[in-house]
Design a protein around this nucleic acid. Structure first.
Length: 428
RNA sequence: GCCGCUGUAGCUUAGUGGGUAGAGCACCCGGCUGUUAACCGGGAGGUCAUCGGUUCGAGCCCGAUCAGCGGCGCCA
């Protein structure tokens, strides 16, 4: 039986059998205390000479941290045990006596990254991975309920999706391919048949960023919807984030508490989120004493200062046209601004979503491409989409790892990913 | 790319007027009848990142190299 199902009065007094790995081990005279861990939880087991065969007792004395075992015994309710119940062992089998396990109570972040393949077993990582799983699960459920289709786009691409960013170059049968940095353009191709689509896939950025919120490979959730406006998309997104937070409170309370994340912080996440125009957010920054010009891309530090005091995410919308990529649709009533938005997570975590309306008129798109100094030849098929039954549409991209980092209250995005890839880390 | 910092046992680290390298955890041996990342006694474990220099003598001072960390910039 899994350990979690032993942690109730139901099986107290009966013979139970479980298996797992040695999490803690200590002996005191004729007693051996084993704390066993499996995918669900931990439980203490007591081995006492005479209560099982001598061979099994000798096995118990030889166990090391992370040894894999199966044990059988009477389940007892015990206040002194770490999870309230313990097994009085009558039979014990070891599958593998583990070699000296390198992880002890003294460990640095760097060391834990070097041995990530072993650190995955920790309660912290296990809890993080379960929370991560739930975020993915809830997102998919939400899209499904809203009538979205899940689709798949290529990771090998022939050219940049957005200008400016650094791409990973990959040899491709004599020509150069690149790893995708966003699936957005491909998603736009799907809306003419499926209307509402999303995908969750890796995106790759070869930027030499050294910050707590950048990875070179990250999980990108992206969506596109025909007929949707910028403001409607914002409403869609905030509902999704609220849904994620409330699902975690329902399903992952234990894991949040292992990570010492205050549930109150998640309870605060309710609609509507704050919505500020770009100009308003600049005013807000100035009121906090920042020295900001009228048009400036908010840096790491500014974002942190602005979002620190908030208790739930905020939107910044309608940025100056010059600050955003060419595909954002300029506001017909105010062409100096584009109909777009960023969602910033509170507590200083910063940007988790970027999205908005896409230009759907062919001539306007051609004009914006050349205004940005780009070559229309590079965007052939993307322009094509505007020639055959083009429709108004919006979309967004969300960094799943960033959402997890914020929601679980993690220090660094590296802790949100089992095997993080950064500018300086490719292994394990 | 820029600025700052670090490298001593498997891990976490102490160690500057330059003079035989010290501890905790983990590991091994022994003890303890309820332990909570226990406690007590003993043991083993070091090319002080690498290379060069100064010096009678370098973990410590100087130079170069390598590796990494933090911040900024760049950037969903």
């Amino acid at each position: 039986m899994h350990i979690s199902s032993l942690l109730s009065d139901e099986h107290v007094g009966s013979l139970v059998k479980t298996r797992g790995w040695v999490y803690r081990w200590r002996e005191s005279g004729p007693l051996v205390f084993i704390i066993v861990r499996d995918s669900t939880n931990i439980i203490q087991a007591i081995v006492e000479r005479g209560k099982l065969s001598d061979d099994d007792f000798e096995t118990a004395k030889k166990l090391t941290i992370e040894s894999s075992i199966e044990l059988e015994g009477n389940l007892v309710k015990e206040k002194k045990a770490p999870t309230g119940y313990e097994i009085h062992v009558s039979k014990l089998t070891a599958f593998n006596i583990a070699e000296k396990f390198p992880i002890t109570k003294d460990k640095s972040d760097e060391f834990l990254l070097d041995i990530r393949h072993l650190w995955l077993r920790s309660r912290e990582m296990t809890a993080t991975l379960k929370i991560r799983e739930t975020i993915f699960e809830t997102s998919r459920e939400y899209f499904k309920e809203k009538g979205y289709h899940e689709v798949h786009t290529p990771m090998f691409v022939g050219a940049a999706v957005e200008g400016g960013s650094t791409l990973f170059e990959v040899p491709y049968f004599g020509e150069k391919a690149y790893l995708t940095q966003s699936s957005q353009f491909y998603l736009e191709a799907f809306i003419y048949s499926l209307e509402k689509v999303y995908t969750i896939s890796p995106s790759f950025r070869a930027e030499k960023s050294r910050t707590r919120r950048h990875l070179t490979e990250f999980s990108h959730l992206e969506a596109e919807s025909a007929w949707m406006s910028n403001q409607e998309m914002m409403t869609f997104e905030e509902e999704m984030i609220v849904r994620i937070a409330s699902d975690l409170l329902d399903k992952r309370k234990d894991e949040l508490s292992i990570l010492k994340r205050d549930p109150e912080k998640l309870k605060n996440i309710e609609t509507p989120f704050y919505r500020y125009t770009y100009e308003k957010i600049i005013d807000l920054g100035r009121s906090k004493g920042m020295d900001l010009p009228d048009i400036v891309d908010l840096g790491e530090k500014e974002e942190r200062e602005i979002t620190e005091g908030f208790d739930k995410p905020l939107f910044v919308y309608n940025f100056p046209t010059s600050l955003k990529p060419f595909y954002h649709r300029p506001d017909p009533d105010d062409p100096a601004h584009v109909l777009c938005h960023d969602m910033l997570a509170p507590e200083g975590y910063g940007e988790i979503i970027g999205g908005g309306e896409r230009i759907w008129n062919k001539d306007e798109l051609l004009r914006r491409i050349s205004e940005n100094g780009l070559n229309t030849d590079d965007y052939g098929w993307y322009i094509d989409l505007r020639r055959f039954g083009s429709v108004p549409h919006s979309g967004f991209g969300l960094g799943m790892d960033r959402v997890l980092t914020w929601i679980a209250g993690l220090e660094h995005i590296k802790n949100a990913v089992p095997f993080p890839r950064t500018i300086r880390r490719l292994r394990p």
